[in-house]
């Protein structure tokens, strides 16, 4: 009995945990902390946790957005009443209504635009911390060519999108807002054409970047994946040709590293995706609620309102939609990249 106890003690004393790869996953930024689940091993459970938390916090956002929309409805209602009483003041009433709605909605638009820019910056910054970890673990798994190509592609396209957002899209949204207010106030068709063109241009920029990125990731994944897969097979063949005992030890070690790298990569990927969702969800919710309520307000105003002011409200919701598209595109781009990393080689 004493020998058995001594043997057990001896065995436990010599057991070493096989944590083959010591990699630290970058923590989610402070802003995302409130939405981050404690258990980040399961993606489904994590998303469900974030979703439940978001549903619980949606009420104040709705109340705030509803206040703004009610004010808009009141302005449109007053404008319609004045419009109905006197034909001579029609143009003036429309102009005043456009300016008032413009003033009322410009401030939230500016706040949401800044929020959108900050969110995009936060996602890009977190991506900069997460991507080297994903690249390193994928390279440890044997995907040297794939990981380099995926890293380069993601950094290039996220940088491109980030630059496009801050240097082109944000100014364009400001210009778009100027044009929709001016168009509604003055009633010039040319202004409306330019406004349509700006909206088309913004949508086109986002779509093109996302399409090209997805295409690049897909093609790169197939080509580099097969190269890496062949290299891993060749290495395994070389190892099995070594001295029997050493060959087995090296093969075991190599297998342990491959499995560990895969586990770390999946863990980092799931954590990273949850962190991205946690960064994205708050601002997306705030802007999304305002966007939906403005859409609803536009439809309500269409029942009794003057056409130009109703269109102005709808166009403002379009501007909110563009901010949402901006954040959503960046989030989608980084998520697609993480999924490509997680998919691995071969």
């Amino acid at each position: 009995m004493r020998k058995i106890i001594l043997l057990i003690v001896f065995v436990f004393a010599f057991i070493r945990p096989v944590s083959a790869l010591d990699v630290s996953i970058p923590e989610a930024p402070d802003a995302a902390e409130e939405y981050m689940p404690e258990d980040t091993e399961s993606f489904g459970d994590g998303v469900w946790y974030i979703f439940k938390l978001v549903i619980g916090k949606i009420h104040p956002e709705i109340v705030e957005a509803s206040g703004i929309c009610l004010s808009v409805v009141a302005i449109v209602l007053i404008c319609s009443l004045v419009h109905g009483f006197s034909d001579s003041t029609k143009r003036t009433t429309e102009l005043i209504a456009a300016v008032m709605i413009g003033i009322l909605l410009f401030r939230p638009s500016e706040i949401f635009l800044q929020l959108g820019v900050d969110t995009v910056r936060e996602m890009t910054d977190y991506g900069k911390l997460l991507l080297p970890v994903m690249t390193g673990t994928m390279a440890a798994q044997g995907g040297t060519t794939s990981s380099a190509a995926l890293y380069s592609g993601t950094v290039l396209f996220s940088g491109l999108l980030s630059t496009a957002i801050s240097n082109i899209l944000v100014p364009l949204i400001y210009i778009y807002i100027c044009f929709i207010v001016a168009g509604s106030a003055v009633g010039h068709e040319q202004l409306k054409e330019i406004q349509k063109f700006i909206k088309w241009l913004m949508t086109w920029i986002l779509k093109i970047i996302l399409y090209v990125f997805t295409g690049y990731m897909g093609i790169t994944g197939i080509i580099t994946g097969s190269v890496d897969s062949a290299a891993v097979k060749a290495t395994k063949l070389t190892i099995s040709g070594a001295v029997p005992v050493i060959g087995n030890i090296i093969a075991d070690a190599s297998e342990t590293i491959l499995v560990s790298a895969g586990v770390v990569k999946s863990g980092a990927g799931v954590y990273g995706m949850l962190a991205m969702i946690a960064i994205l969800i708050g601002p997306f919710l705030q802007i999304g609620v305002q966007y939906l309520l403005l859409k609803f307000t536009g439809s309500v105003c269409a029942i009794f309102g003057v056409k130009s002011t109703t269109n102005l409200v709808k166009d403002f919701s379009g501007a909110m939609g563009m901010i949402l598209a901006m954040i959503g595109t960046m989030g989608l781009l980084l998520m697609v990249s993480i999924v490509c990393f997680m998919k691995g080689i071969g």
């Binding site: 096989v18 083959a20 790869l21 010591d22 990699v23 991507l131 080297p132 690249t135 390193g136 673990t137 994928m138 390279a139 440890a140 798994q141 040297t144 990981s147 380099a148 190509a149 890293y151 380069s152 950094v155 290039l156 940088g159 090296i250 075991d252 070690a253 190599s254 342990t256 590293i257 560990s260 790298a261």
Partner: peptide, 23 residues
């Protein structure tokens, strides 16, 4: 960007090699 990608890949390879050597 390319240099950064190569550096990240190298880090991963060094990490894998060190861990493998340890095992």
């Amino acid at each position: 960007i390319t240099a950064d990608a190569e550096s990240a890949v190298q880090n991963g390879q060094i990490l894998a090699k060190d861990s493998m050597a340890e095992i």
